[in-house]
Design a protein around this nucleic acid. Structure first.
Lengths: 341, 341
DNA sequence: ATGAAAGCGCTAACAC
DNA sequence: GTGTTAGCGCTTTCAT
């Protein structure tokens, strides 16, 4: 088994110095055309591939992007990975993916990624970013782009879904249907997506002078199971809702399951709407009315911005925030004539 | 902004040599306990993190695992990533993810990952692995584990779903229902999952002496749209099926949509079954009868095996193959009493 | 246009 | 138990 071929070997065979080989291969500095050709030919023939570690050691560039997600489940996160991979691939870089296995660990993962120079930059999705993490991000030598974090973090770069606007619109949509007792199944405490969605909900109620019944507000965990239990709880009390806004589609699916068991008809007895527009939401019967989250756009903007920070085309110290608009997807679950089936 | 702190700085402050620091930090070789403590304290205080590139350069280990998937879409692949990340994380490694953006590119990605030593090993899912790739894998210096590839590749390590068995069972299940004209919507040509599923289907028919009508075999692309068109085609011909086996759930979803538009009732008019048991399949009405694919187990076995190859606990030159059994998920779409709703 | 040589930060013989 | 030193493979001044 032949030993790994390195730049010295190429240089030796071409009868030049390693410096020249380096210049020829990287198009950095002048090399006589003839020499260039010779070097390239030899490198080609030997299938030479520069050792990325050695290169990184000198250049301090890894050509690697880090992506930290809260969890590695759901098509939602898959879409993020997909979009970012696409962009990373086209710029000849690599993608490291990690999930923040616990809140404590966002910090560790971040440190491992950045502190030691394993990546050139990080995209961090952390709907529950705490102060410690925020501090870390601000101090980081490598650029970091935040996704769906509290947008009041100063001195950071972040992109997020306009949760407020989405929640506000869909709530107004329910109000225009004439529903009077609109319940909300909130997302988990401390999750800023959840908070913003709740804010959109309550401000829409306020605008239309509808009361906010505390008994109609329950908290879920953004998963199917909690939606299921939440709906059961809502229907078992005196004040029953005529419409339910689940803070995400997974919980809405739980609502559908519970409704079926309780023989509650959607939307005749209770209207249901969600948030995210996941693939499964279109399979529900009736199709779920929900808020479309342009996840591709989110990922795309984040990675493009990060790459420009890395190339210093944008000053990494400059803070920036952008909220991406959502859109309403009308199904039959809100009481509208469902056009999709 | 202070310059990056390195091992020399730690050594200087501790009044020892870099060698000692290295030994203390890595628990390799003897260090007097008192010295150890001092070094550790200083490292801690300065929040010192060894440069992984420098380390890799000497040790020839990257602590990074490469994962190459056909595409970065679907919960299916997300589950793979999830499982592998979990294991990778617990062994203090990192995960690089890439999709083989085109068949041509499996080769390039593989070469980039391995040839240059960016990763310690690779998990490659390539249902259409060609000869060029197979050769590459066999020659590779770094261990490679193949997922769902043709299991007749010699001298490789591979894990796969037992597609044959799954397809055979579910086809037999349909036969036991008494269906006589069972159609199959196949997966794409050259895809070995697809081929095996078809083989299971046709052998089951053969075993029960049922004819294989070529007009009842159509080819899809493993996506919803192609399932939709395939079903339309099947229903528009003289010989209409009384049951349809879609080679994966996504195509089965397409079948459901087409059936609804054609006012074909499932299972009264035509029974439908799928393969994969994706999340969405349980949302269909009636719930889809399908084959459960233990994707977690697949990912887990692959990564565990790979790690053992990397640690030389297992000889990487030794070839190995294991097929993971599937299970039947009974819904209402095959004509069985659906228990789930 | 090319080469010599320093150095990136770390590990691992080998010496003491 | 600790230090010296030679790399690992590459890029990059600085000469020439």
């Amino acid at each position: 088994m032949h030993t790994t071929i390195n730049i010295r070997e190429i240089a030796r065979r071409a009868g030049v110095s390693t410096a020249t080989v380096s210049r020829a291969l990287n198009n950095t500095g002048p090399v006589r055309e003839k020499t260039r050709q010779r070097i390239l030919a030899i490198a080609q023939e030997l299938d030479y591939r520069p050792n990325p570690m050695a290169r990184s050691l000198t250049t301090k560039q890894t050509n690697t992007i880090g992506l930290i997600l809260p969890e590695l489940v759901d098509e939602f996160f898959m879409d993020i990975i997909h979009t970012i991979d696409e962009e990373v691939y086209h710029t000849n870089r690599f993608l490291m993916v990690a999930s923040s296995h616990s809140q404590r660990n966002v910090v560790e993962t971040l440190l491992d990624f950045m502190g030691s120079g394993r990546v050139d930059g990080v995209i961090l999705m952390a709907p529950q970013v705490n102060i410690e993490v925020a501090k870390l991000v601000r101090r980081s030598k490598r650029p970091v782009v935040l996704l769906n974090s509290k947008n009041n973090q100063q001195q950071t770069v972040s992109f997020s879904i306009n949760n407020f606007q989405g929640a506000f619109s869909i709530t107004e949509h329910l109000i225009k249907h004439g529903y009077q007792r609109i319940a909300m199944i909130q997302g988990p405490d401390g999750n800023c997506d959840a908070e913003e969605r709740f804010r959109g909900f309550s401000e829409a109620l306020a605008k239309h002078k509808l009361p906010l019944h505390s008994s109609l507000i329950v908290t879920g965990q953004f998963n199917e199971e909690s939606g299921y239990y939440a709906f059961n709880r809502l229907m078992s009390q005196n004040l029953q809702p005529d419409a339910v806004f689940a803070a995400n589609d997974m919980m809405a699916i739980g609502v559908y399951k519970a409704a079926q068991q309780l023989s509650v008809r959607i939307p005749q007895d209770v209207a249901v709407v969600g948030f995210d527009n996941i693939y499964a939401s279109q399979l529900l019967n009736p199709r779920l009315t929900t808020v479309h989250v342009p996840i591709d756009e989110l990922g795309m903007k984040a990675i493009r911005y990060l790459l420009r920070m890395i190339s210093r085309e944008i000053d990494p110290a400059q803070s920036y925030h952008e909220a991406i608009s959502t859109g309403l997807i009308i199904g039959g679950s809100c009481g509208c004539q469902d056009l999709s089936r």
